[in-house]
């Protein structure tokens, strides 16, 4: 990062004007890794949303004469099924595109539920302090030390697999992180000089919250959200792979890996392709989040 370009944004000062946002965007676009990662991620999200327009085939349509057809670059492959077909002759590319709808959809739903609830609780705890804060933090400490997978798998086994149940279980696992983070930011912000100054100047609480506090917690929250999204995509894939998540025949990446698991030796593309889709998703999110932290956290700037 170029220090001289960004030095004017001193730590702790809110990003307020449009000019600042534009400067941030131009800073960010200069970072080619971050830009590529963001573009890749946006393409994945768009192709998931418009899966019905982008996917070449129906993801559920069987073509039993073309079972386990290899991808186009392998001998015997054809352009009809670019990434080949699975055991039931379903188009792998189409299933991966629709699978993204499932995996990313679940990811965003969990972020929306767990993130909103967690952030609110955390902000409230940091703002109110006192007993509410103490009880909440105690509970979170406890929940974080429970072996998460064990609990999640047990609940899923008891209430039965399915997308809705999976979203609930993943949200329960996700909110404490947001609460902790939002609280710690709130705590440190309360002691910042500019908040004190705004209060002394007679600013109303609500104005202080929305104009001064919110812009400051936004970028760390975006970073946390991205990292959490990548973790949720991985967890969702694992749960579906273990038969405790999305149910067949709905296409989901983890489920596709599981379905093709036994045919790894004769049709590795049926495992490889959905795995690569997961990998591209988590990589693009992680690269984006890491670079975003560097370009928005002034204290991190000199370090790269």
């Amino acid at each position: 990062m170029n220090m001289s370009k960004t030095a004017s944004t001193t730590p702790g000062r809110p990003i307020r004007s449009v000019g600042r946002i534009l400067r941030f965007l131009s800073d960010f676009s200069r970072d080619k890794y971050a830009t590529v990662a963001l573009v890749v991620f946006v393409v994945l999200v768009l192709s998931s949303i418009f899966a019905n327009l982008v996917a070449p085939h129906d993801p559920l349509k069987l073509d039993l004469l073309n079972r386990l057809a290899p991808p186009v670059w392998v001998e015997g492959g054809s352009w009809k099924y670019i990434f080949g077909t699975d055991l039931l002759g379903r188009d792998i590319l189409s299933r991966c595109i629709y699978g993204g709808r499932m995996s990313l959809g679940i990811g965003f739903a969990v972020i929306l539920i767990g993130g909103t609830f967690g952030s609110l609780m955390g902000l409230l705890a940091g703002y109110l302090g006192g007993r509410f804060d103490a009880v909440l933090m105690r509970y979170i400490d406890f929940q974080i030390s429970i072996p998460y997978f064990l609990l999640a798998l047990t609940i899923m086994a008891a209430i039965g697999p399915g997308t809705k149940n999976l979203i609930i279980v993943l949200s329960i696992g996700s909110w404490p992180l947001f609460a902790r983070y939002a609280r710690s930011i709130m705590m440190s912000l309360r002691q910042q000089v500019f908040i004190e100054a705004a209060r002394v100047a007679g600013g109303k609480e609500i104005v202080i919250m929305t104009r001064h506090v919110l812009p400051n917690i936004l970028s760390p929250l975006v970073t946390l959200t991205s990292l959490e999204l990548s973790r949720i995509v991985l967890t969702e894939a694992t749960m579906s792979y273990l038969g405790m998540g999305v149910r067949a025949p709905t296409p989901a990446w983890g489920l596709m890996v599981q379905e093709a698991h036994d045919y790894l030796m004769i049709a590795n593309w049926a495992v490889t392709t959905p795995g690569v889709f997961i990998m591209i998703t988590t990589l693009s999110i992680n690269i984006f989040a890491t670079r975003l932290r560097i370009s928005t956290d002034p204290l991190q700037r000199g370090k790269h």
Binding site: S230, L234, A237, W253, V257, T272, V276, M279, I285, I287
Partner: peptide, 22 residues
């Protein structure tokens, strides 16, 4: 390190088996 934390384990284990065993 970013690559390491992005790896889907369900896929990575199978790929390693494919490459080194098969």
């Amino acid at each position: 390190s970013i690559l390491g934390v992005s790896l889907p384990l369900i896929w990575f284990t199978l790929m390693m088996a494919l490459i080194f065993s098969v």
